[in-house]
Nucleic acid binder design. Structure first.
Lengths: 218, 218, 218, 218
DNA sequence: GATGAATGAGTTTTCATTCAT
DNA sequence: AATGAATGAAAACTCATTCAT
């Protein structure tokens, strides 16, 4: 019956259903983000969502299923904010694009503190599936960064170096700030602007004095 | 009686005892490193160490106690390899010191892959105690890096920038490689030399083309 | 939703719940009464109640919690049967009141053999909490007896003596019969009437021949 | 070899052995008396006695064996202090004998506080054997008291009443004071003299004003 | 005899998941 | 669809007893 053409009743019902689902996801997010996967019990989630125990399993197959869904959601969110930076003719200069990207990434992280926590924290012991997805996620970011760097090298903006390693350095830098925002100091209001500029400045130019000292240190 | 000066027997016995302890620690390390804290059960550890259930509790107070001991041990190991780098008159140039340090850190990490895994992974949900120690550990590293950078600025090797943010960038870079070594690709033989040089190159000089292009991009 | 006014369903459910609870309490009572606290395992209780392991913890926080609840219940029961005896103008003569009280106490004890067993037996090693409650319980009974005796002395029914010691004697007598009923001879049908009268006779008049011998012994 | 005629060596050895045994018994007594059977672990006993774990089992078959031995010892001690009171021609008047007996019993109890604690407390859950011995012990005391009362009735000192019940009353009174001394108030120095006299006064004469003098005693 | 490391059966408790109502 | 009582496998930890040295 519900599989017939959707009349008013089923539409309302399925909207209702979607609402419920979202409420549960939100409750779970709060908890996973705050107390980690193992520290969060199904009891906590149903209490948070104000539903009955059985209802939870009407919407999600298992505790790990809802966790994975949240994980995917956040990875999607992050990915969509990173993709979009492309070096190419007719595009703004790469540096401007990068400032913008870093800005957007850090803002996304900040806006989704809790979800990001899921990624930064729980890395292992949640089964091969989680490991695999996180690996893929980071691999895709690495690839993106690397492509950007190589494009930069091709057009002469970026100097020659080991792009594989460099992209890891950049990823590490980004992750550190993700962690800084969500884990280490979640209460303090962070200055995203300052962060983005400083991160970029560091990544683009390094720490050394440009000319004079460069000769002395070698 | 047994509290008298240790004769051959008690010496041998206490050596034996220390051996056992180490065996159990090793078995636990393998398992925690591979499957995480929650994924590892006391049963796994005693199976791994080839001892009886009760024997485990003869040597360690609890599952969390042995985990904390391993954690402390690795943080100690890492700290002792980081401390020692100091900018100052009569010391080798900072860059050389840094190459050396990065090298040593990455080697330590590589030699203690599994232990490092404990630090990189399990970040939350193991109780306030673990959280606190990890926080302290990273804080001490951050302070160390920052001090080094500021010293560098004072003596004119390092250019002016936000040292708080920059030290986080460097820490993030280091952590990324720790993770790279222990989590992401634990089987593949990594080229520590190449890593150390590339990391340093990136951190010191950034990604941009030094001179000519620097004017054009702005 | 379920917190709205209780409809037929929730009323039935909560009645059911109360039933279950009582069933478990009953099973536990039988076992604690028969085999003592340490001799009774949670496994015994769930077997006795015909429930699953987890169900037990749905109704009681722990093994000691259910024991304490039974303990409190019996102390309550006994107390309520003792309180009510008061010497005063317009009240039945103290002796009649006492016969009645002893009767009621022994009947209560008999009706709650198993529960009483808990009090008579387990006196130590169950933690300070149990000790404390038993101490309080007996202290309240002692105080009650003593007050009654002193009131009796005031109105001239009771002769002069050390009421502190005498109340202990009476308490000891009562406890002995509690024990007699529940521990020493739980199967044999006891004659409460005979007991009550004899106990009172003993307590009120002692064992000595009233007149003649009294002169000879002094 | 040790089974040959005891030479100096084996005599010394066996004296030594007896000493050790006693030390262990003493340590166990302290602990059982203070913390109960279940609250006392073999570890506590060997710590208290300053011996090795295995040594304990060289002297006692099991934890319950040493407990039973202590139990027997105390029952023996008490019995030997009660037996000796006999009504008969040529003996001191029963009342004097009783004062003496009560005195001696309470003193014995006081001198052996801890041992008495074993009897007063742990009554159940230690297996049929313990139950049986305690039952026998109390039965023998009851019989003794009853015989004394009946002898008293025969020679006209004691009035007519239900001696079975009365002997229980007296036993209960005695036990209450045993408990008072060892459990309820073990620290406070008790006044054995006052206790003994008051107990006897209560048992012999009860609480009521003696009929004839009920008006005149005041 | 003495030692104490090792044992492992047995205990309590947890918690994700199921299912009758 | 929603409920929440019931489930039971699995986990950590205890402690009396044994046995090789």
């Amino acid at each position: 019956m519900t599989e017939a053409t959707e009349d008013g009743r089923t539409i309302r019902a399925s909207a209702q259903r979607e609402n419920r689902r979202t409420e549960i996801l939100d409750a779970a997010l709060q908890l996973f983000g705050r107390k980690g996967y193992h520290g969060t019990h199904v009891s906590d989630i149903i209490d948070g969502a104000g539903i009955a125990r059985g209802t939870f399993y009407l919407y999600f197959e298992s505790k790990s299923a809802i966790f994975l869904e949240l994980l995917d959601r956040m990875m999607q969110e992050l990915r969509s904010n990173i993709v979009g930076v492309e070096a190419g003719p007719g595009r703004p200069p790469m540096e401007a694009q990068l400032v913008d990207t870093v800005h957007r990434i850090l803002n996304t992280v900040h806006d989704n503190r809790l979800l990001t926590g899921l990624i930064v924290r729980e890395a292992v012991g949640l089964g091969e599936e989680v490991d695999e997805r996180l690996r893929e996620f980071y691999a895709s970011i690495l690839t993106y960064i690397r492509d950007a760097l190589e494009e930069g090298q091709r057009i002469g903006i970026v100097r020659e170096f080991d792009t594989e390693i460099a992209s890891m350095c950049i990823l590490g830098t980004i992750k550190q700030f993700m962690e800084q925002i969500v884990v280490i100091d979640p209460s303090r209001d962070v200055d995203i602007d300052r962060m983005a500029l400083a991160v970029l400045d560091f990544s683009l130019r390094g720490v050394l004095q440009p000319r004079a000292s460069r000769d002395t240190t070698r």
